[in-house]
Amino acid sequence: MLDEQDKNVIRELQKGLPLVSRPFELIAGRLQMSETELIERVRSFERSGMIRRFGAAVRHHDLGYTANAMVVWDVPDGAVDEVGQSMAAFKEVTHCYQRPRHPGWPYNLFTVVHGRTRDECVQISEKISKKTNIANYRLLFSTAELKKSSMRYFE
């Protein structure tokens, strides 16, 4: 379980790293801990997996990856593990999750496919379909972004 100080560290870290020579010293000062203690705490968060990555989150649009599609697949239940791993191995696939089916919603494997154009996403999906033998799938392109924000924890 996270103690109050852990939560304080998370609250400060999610504001982003200050652009100064000694960013951890600056944050540590606000938390009344030492720079070394803070860095150690961040390392332990990383070891335990609470911090997935410490670095820059980049807007893909600005890197020329203007198209992305959520591609949903209807995979036989017994094959989900194998197919999921196989799809995850494609470099164009950035996310791959198993999710439940619902009445009117037969798709149980979700991937996000990135390409430079819409056509490229279609081609990548065809390639994945052939490789994994999953024929029942759909591309759901986004037509509008209604919200995109970073989560603020413990606020």
Binding site: I10, Q14, K15, F54, A57, V58, R59, L63
Partner: peptide, 9 residues
Amino acid sequence: VIRRLGAIF
């Protein structure tokens, strides 16, 4: 270009 710099939880 960079949305955020730091910890991704």
